[in-house]
Design a protein around this nucleic acid. Structure first.
Lengths: 238, 238
DNA sequence: ACAAAAGTGTTGCACTTACACCCATGA
DNA sequence: TCATGGGTGTAAGTGCAACACTTTTGT
C-alpha cells in the first residue's frame, strides 16, 4: 500500500456554517462574496480557521460573530466533515461544517459583502459549499419532522398561521395550519400566551398567540417503527 | 476577544471508528489495548492519522484493514468531529469519528491486542472514546428504525428468528419476530430465497430463509409526521 | 400421535389527514 | 349583516402491536 502518512501535519482545519433563516417566505442562507482568488466573485459560507484553544463549535460561533450576533443564533449543530484532498486549491484544508438557524423575526446587520440567498436558487458558489448548503437544508427538513426544532425558526411568540408559513417555507411544501397545531399540541410543544394578534385590515377573527414550551432541541418522535414493547405511545394495550 | 488563531496549524487530524457487530447475543465494539502511555492498558478505538492524499472515509477504511478486512465491513458512516483542545494529552489532535458495521456471520482474525467488548459493559477506555462508542450505538439504534440498515448486521441469508435476535441485541429490547417480518416485508426490504434452514434437534417446522433486497443504506420511513399533502403513505384519501 | 418451532390471520389501538362547520372581528 | 380569517369537531385511512391459530417438521 502507498504510504499516505508521510507529510505531517496533513491539513489545516476550517469551520464553516450554513446559517439558515426563513425570509420573505423562502428558506435562505447567509453567504459572502469572495473578493480575491481563488474563486473570486463566487459566494462562500462564513467561517474560518480553527483556533488553537477552541473546539469546533466554539470556533464557528466566534467566527460568525462578525456576520450575525451569536445571541441571534437559535441553534447550531455539526453536519459533517468535508475532507476531499482537492476540495480547495493550494494547501489542503479539512472543513467541519455546521448548520446554524436564526429566528425569522431578527434581521441582523450585515457586512457589505454579505447577503441572504434562497437555498433553492443559489448563486455561483465557491469550492464545495453548495453541497454543504444542501446538507444543511436536508438536515433541517428532516429534524423539523421528528424534533421540536421549529422553535429555532420562530419568534418568541407567533400565530399558528405564521408558524405554518415558516414550516411551509422550510419544508418546501404546504403544511396545514390545523394539523400543524394538533401535532405540536399533542406533543406538548406549544402553549398559548393568552394574548391575541390584531386582525388584518379585512377583519377576521384575531389569531391567538402561542409560544414553544422548550427552547432547546429535543427529539419528540424517536421511533418511526420497531418501538419497545408496552410503551405509552403506539402499540395496542389489550 | 483573545486571539486564538495564532498557532497554525492548530491540530493534527485522526480518524477513529467504532466498529460494531452483534456477537453472542449482544452488541459489541472492537477495541485494542494500549501498551504505551498515555493511557496505557486502557482500551482504544482503532484508527490513526489522516494521510495527505486521502479523505477521512478512505482513511478510516485503510486504517481498519489491519484489524478487519475492509470487505467485511458492510457499512461505514461519519458520526461527528471530536475537537476539544484537551481531548488527548500532548499535541492537539482533532478526531473524525465513524460508525462501522460487520455482519454477524463473519469472525475476523484479530491482532493479539484487539478484542470485542459489549457496548453496554465497556472496559476502561482511553481518552474520549467511550462517548464515541455511545454515539455509534445510538446512531445505529435510531437508523434501524427508519432505514434498511439491518442488512448491515445480517448475513446474506437468514431466518426471521435469527434476524429478530440481531435486532433485539442491537436495539436492547425484545422485538417480535411476527411484527419485524411484517414491517420489513411491507416496505419491500425482505424477500424469501426459497430455501429453508434445517430445524433444530427438537424438531419443529423448518424456517424459511430470507435476504435483504438492497445492500446499500436507504431511508425507508422518511417522515415521522408533517408529510407532504396527498402522498402515497399516510393520510386519508377520500 | 405429540411436541416444538415457524409463520399467518385477526383484532384493537394510536396517529394523522382532510374537510366541514362554528367563532370572532372589521367594515 | 356580511365578508374574512381563525379555530374545532369528526370521519376515514393507515400502520403497528398483540395474540390466537395453523402449518410443518422430528421423535
Amino acid at each position: 500500500m502507498p504510504d499516505v502518512t508521510t507529510a505531517l501535519p496533513v491539513a489545516d482545519h476550517e469551520v464553516l456554517a450554513a446559517v439558515l433563516q426563513v425570509r420573505a417566505g423562502s428558506l435562505q442562507v447567509l453567504l459572502w462574496e469572495r473578493a480575491q482568488e481563488p474563486h473570486a466573485h463566487r459566494w462562500s459560507l462564513p467561517g474560518g480557521r480553527l483556533g488553537a484553544t477552541e473546539d469546533v463549535e466554539s470556533s464557528i460561533r466566534r467566527q460568525l460573530e462578525e456576520k450575525v450576533d451569536v445571541r441571534q443564533l437559535s441553534h447550531v449543530e455539526q453536519l459533517a466533515v468535508f475532507s476531499a484532498p482537492e476540495r480547495v486549491p493550494g494547501e489542503r484544508v479539512v472543513a467541519s461544517a455546521f448548520l446554524g438557524l436564526v429566528p425569522s423575526d431578527v434581521d441582523p446587520a450585515l457586512p457589505p459583502d454579505t447577503a441572504w440567498h434562497p437555498v433553492d436558487a443559489l448563486p455561483r458558489t465557491a469550492f464545495d459549499h453548495e453541497s454543504i448548503v444542501r446538507r444543511a437544508r436536508d438536515r433541517l427538513r428532516a429534524k423539523l419532522s421528528y424534533t421540536n426544532l421549529g422553535f429555532a425558526l420562530a419568534p418568541p411568540t407567533f400565530t399558528i398561521s405564521a408558524l405554518r408559513s415558516l414550516y411551509s417555507a422550510a419544508l418546501g411544501y404546504k403544511v396545514s395550519a390545523t394539523n400543524l397545531q394538533r401535532v405540536l399540541s399533542r406533543r406538548g410543544l406549544l402553549e398559548p400566551t393568552g394574548d391575541t394578534a390584531p386582525p388584518g385590515k379585512a377583519g377576521g377573527r384575531p389569531a391567538a398567540l402561542f409560544r414553544f414550551t422548550q427552547r432547546g432541541i429535543e427529539v419528540t418522535d424517536p421511533f418511526a417503527v420497531l418501538r419497545p414493547p408496552n410503551q405509552a405511545r403506539g402499540g395496542a394495550a389489550t
